[in-house]
Design a protein around this nucleic acid. Structure first.
Lengths: 144, 144
DNA sequence: TTCTAAGATAGGAATGGTTCTTATTGGCAG
DNA sequence: CTGCCAATAAGAACCATTCCTATCTTAGAA
């Protein structure tokens, strides 16, 4: 799905579940679609200032939580205390740099569910499999 | 490594890096070794009350951060705001239940590093590969 | 063993990220 | 166009985590 399709989908989902399509929701969603660095709420808030100078940070929090609930965006799993979000919805994976905290996306096809241990296949209902690589990115290695 | 070996290793590492072996550090480490539910700081704090009735929660935070820095324990990556820790050090993976938040450990041999996309193999220096499964555990399915 | 210096802790205050409260605004169905 | 109800802004409140500092403990020296 490209940006336009994502926006159409966004509006459709909102209509379907009874969410009003407000200026703020639309701008927050669009801003996240254009952000490929898995921004924190604070970062998004600042990026939105030019378009929405009076928006409150609470609205950003509330909206992201709402969008997440309806599977329009994803909350990224990290060890940090600050929440980070992304707009990319295709199943993909992350490489996280221990040094700078940067997150890089990558695609990788999961080998075969049967390669998982039996105990986990019986664990429950699997929804998502995400591989996270930890290490130090090339740029941080150079800077050492 | 069994518990006894882990404790010996703990003391050795402390000596090596100049950390004093305090009663609190030892008890916090032992408590985490005995906990298999990836407890939050708050939970550990309460479990330690019987043995260390006057311990402050700051000490638990500080100690866990210190132990993590020296690779004696691991901070678990979740979407939650509260930090969770574990004492298991063998490389393993997690299945997280969306409903109850429970985390189940499992072992799984990573197929082959060459199966990762080239872009990631050149990303930097990889330290750890962790697979996280998301879904709903059997118990929560039953309860629905 | 005793002494001492440096490091560690307890307790409370402070901080920072996130959520709640409330008055006001604005989307949208009729 | 109008009214209802959801959504927002602003600031207060909340909660997890960290800081401050006086006191205590550990580990090494005497």
């Amino acid at each position: 799905m490209n940006t336009e399709e994502r926006l159409r989908n966004f509006k459709e989902i909102c209509r379907k579940v009874g969410l009003k399509i407000t200026h703020q929701r639309l701008e927050i969603f669009k801003e996240l679609l254009n952000s490929h660095d898995h921004p924190t709420v604070e970062k998004l808030y600042h990026r939105l200032q030019p378009k929405l100078p009076t928006i409150s940070i609470d609205t950003v929090y509330r909206t992201l939580t709402t969008l997440e609930k309806h599977d329009l965006i994803v909350r990224v799993e990290t060890e940090e205390s600050q929440a980070r979000f992304e707009g990319r919805m295709e199943e993909h994976h992350h490489a996280i740099c221990k040094k700078c905290g940067g997150i890089t996306d990558f695609y990788w096809e999961f080998p075969d569910e049967a390669s998982l241990p039996a105990e986990i296949l019986n664990w429950g209902q699997l929804v998502k499999k995400s591989l996270t690589l930890h290490g130090i990115c090339e740029q941080c290695i150079q800077e050492e």
